[in-house]
Amino acid sequence: MSADSPVTAIVVAWNSADALPECLEALTREGVAIIVVDNASSDDTAAVATAHGAQVIRNARNEGYGRGNNIGVAAALSDYVLIINPDCAPDPGCIAALVAAAGRWPDAGMLAPRIIEPDGRLFFQRRSLLSPYLTNPPDILRLPEGDCCAPFLSGACLLMRRAVFGRLGGYDPNIFLFYEDDDLCRRVADAGLALVHVHDAVARHGRGKSAGRAPGRIFRARWHMAWSQAYVAHKWGLRSPAPTTALVNGCKTLLALFSFRRATIERYAGSAAGALAFLRGGQAVTREHLEPAPDERNGG
């Protein structure tokens, strides 16, 4: 680990032993300090991280993505932190290009590279649930050809000044999984800072390879997706999608039972259950046996 690096990479991992080597080798080539936050993995995640020279923080339980990153950033000492998924690997020069862009654009609160998906497509989300300040035509996709401001930057790989991350409170600790990056992007924008897509920086994202295929994984993921969407909508004063999500997916679950396809049933049942849990006042972190933070539903 490079102790004097201006950048510390924070990698939150859960059963990510298979995906980690490519990520950590790429980060090591970039010369950055590396902190792997192991969310109580049952595989060799911690051992793999240690073997690659990373500082490893072993959580006693799965703290979720946002809380895991907050823990990692709190342990960093560098000026910048790079939030990166275990299944994402920066190309040579990627991190240096992000830091250089931060120097060019001093009003940038968050910067992200050009993220390439496994099929070669460029990931660029032209709108977000929480980005009314940048409304792009819904039927027209214009991909960036250079640096530009964006309504949303993916948490798969992003660079922030550690001081800015701390000043904004980091990730919302009440979100266990999903939409935590939308929420942070909104707070960056509301603080008067820009979200900048840096085109000369490139990272490769092996989407979906960061965690093992545990039983019930689809139900759990869809539960959190539905709950988190409802949570951030309520937090930012938007119309709640939870009633519609619960009703539509409840009906789809009943129909899916006749297909006898477990994955399909889990997908719809998980979405319905997550939305219903939110409507009943349930907390995502409580479901995961964690203590909820002070209620932020009415905060911004």
Score class of each variant (00 low, 15 high):
8 T>V: 07
9 A>E: 06
10 I>P: 00
11 V>H: 09
16 S>I: 12
29 R>T: 08
31 G>R: 05
35 I>T: 15
41 S>I: 10
42 S>F: 09
47 A>I: 05
47 A>M: 12
51 A>E: 14
54 A>F: 04
55 Q>H: 10
57 I>T: 05
60 A>D: 15
62 N>W: 05
67 R>Y: 02
67 R>D: 07
68 G>A: 08
70 N>G: 07
70 N>A: 06
71 I>F: 03
79 D>Q: 14
81 V>P: 00
97 A>P: 02
98 L>F: 03
103 G>M: 09
107 D>E: 14
108 A>P: 03
112 A>D: 02
113 P>D: 10
116 I>L: 13
119 D>H: 10
123 F>H: 14
124 F>D: 13
127 R>L: 06
129 L>I: 14
137 P>W: 10
139 D>V: 04
140 I>R: 15
142 R>Q: 13
156 A>V: 02
174 N>K: 02
180 E>D: 14
187 R>K: 06
190 D>N: 08
192 G>I: 07
193 L>N: 04
194 A>I: 00
195 L>M: 02
196 V>H: 00
197 H>Q: 02
200 D>T: 11
202 V>G: 03
205 H>R: 04
212 G>W: 09
215 P>R: 03
218 I>T: 15
224 H>C: 09
229 Q>Y: 05
234 H>D: 14
244 T>F: 13
247 L>P: 00
261 R>P: 03
261 R>A: 08
266 E>S: 09
266 E>K: 04
295 D>R: 03
299 G>E: 15
300 G>F: 11
